[in-house]
Design a protein around this nucleic acid. Structure first.
Lengths: 214, 214
DNA sequence: ACGATGTCGAACACGATGTCCGAGTATGGT
DNA sequence: ACCATACTCGGACATCGTGTTCGACATCGT
């Protein structure tokens, strides 16, 4: 008695696969339930007996992703790290291994629902990762803001990457992320309670002067 | 003869205002054309004589925003900067001055369309800002990746900020952004052609060791 | 082999979309 | 002040996607 009826597993698998395959083709918003049904070759009432609507189907697939990613990430903390990788590096690697899925979730044609849930997933992750570091350093850096910054930066790179068909390898991407992200955090942690507004007041000179990140 | 018929301006203004007001209430996706019509007190056929659909109405408002923001940004480059602000600082200030609009565009209840267009807007902006710096420094940092990183980071903070009802002032937010973003870019520009993959290979030690940004 | 459970497919009510048209009304130019 | 023009209104309409229901049939686990 494996979890469920064989037919149920079959239907749900077909529906999930159909949706993921359809997203890069039509874009999530333009996909109709009938499209999914045709692609999956599944009856209408079968769909609604498993899922409330299109979003529900998408979100159901998310649970698998969540646990899968969580497993990869937990492999980081406990033992001595064989590869000194950051959480974001793990995410990039995970995305590379599940290219089709991430193309549907982060790609240009993904929908609001996927983006938001992925954002929340990563955001919670990074917040928990950052909090202890910021607190023990006694920094005045707000954890939430830092989490927002690094989450969006990582997901922004991820989205760009997906739309580039994963051109540079995951290691190269993680490398660039580290180069851009690490110094800022280290600097912020090193300066616990200096006057915050003054740090922006350094002159950038003319438009040809010292570069501002934007 | 000001541009257009007074009635046209009136109708379009009413429709734009209705949409912007409706988004934070219902969420863009759940808004129906009829909702907009009721709120604006405008006839159905009038709507369709001006806009193709809901998205079209949203995008039309974007043009005004674009030119407005562009004006603020051009005030940066030419003369000696009175305030040494970065493009992102200008964007934060602009968002603060148009809180209602940005609440609709970046807020939790905004739609895919708005997010994507705003992303493209800022992305193009930052790419142009970054390219000369990266090129003159002879860095191997890909411009597109850097643009993706900083654009998403800025918009991520902006979204968080909007959903917090603009709690810390725009200056404080810009300050934090600078603290997190600037060191990374400076470091990347200072290391023109070092072996890229090695920079990530520094040991982070155990999970309690040196902080990785995520 | 048998009862339980899942699937199918068609039909249905509903709500939203986008188009059309005739009648009424405000506008800007002269 | 007048008038032709252009805009607005509102209802009717065809179309499409959604989510539900139901009876006949198939597949499952035991």
């Amino acid at each position: 008695m494996p979890g469920q009826d064989r037919r149920v597993r079959r239907s749900q698998r077909l529906l999930r696969e159909a949706l993921v395959a359809l997203i890069p083709e039509k874009g999530y918003d333009r996909i109709t339930v009938q499209d999914i049904l045709d692609r999956a070759d599944v009856g209408r009432s079968t769909f609604y007996s498993h899922y409330r609507d299109k979003d529900d189907l998408l979100l159901a697939g998310f649970d698998d992703l969540r646990t899968d990613l969580k497993r990869d990430l937990d492999a980081l903390s406990p033992g001595v790290p064989p590869h000194p990788t950051s959480p974001t590096g793990v995410i990039f690697a995970h995305a590379y291994r599940h290219r089709d899925l991430y193309k549907a979730l982060c790609g240009r044609r993904g929908g609001t629902v996927a983006q938001r849930h992925l954002h929340r997933l990563v955001s919670d992750l990074l917040r928990d990762h950052l909090r202890p570091h910021i607190e023990t350093a006694g920094s005045d850096l707000p954890v939430d803001v830092a989490a927002a910054f690094y989450t969006s930066a990582a997901l922004g790179m991820l989205t760009w990457w997906v739309d580039q068909d994963f051109r540079p390898g995951p290691a190269a991407l993680a490398s660039i992320y580290q180069r851009l992200a690490a110094p800022g955090l280290l600097a912020a942690l090193a300066a616990p309670a200096s006057t915050p507004p003054s740090s922006i007041e350094k002159h950038t000179g003319t438009s040809h002067g010292r570069p501002a990140p934007g």
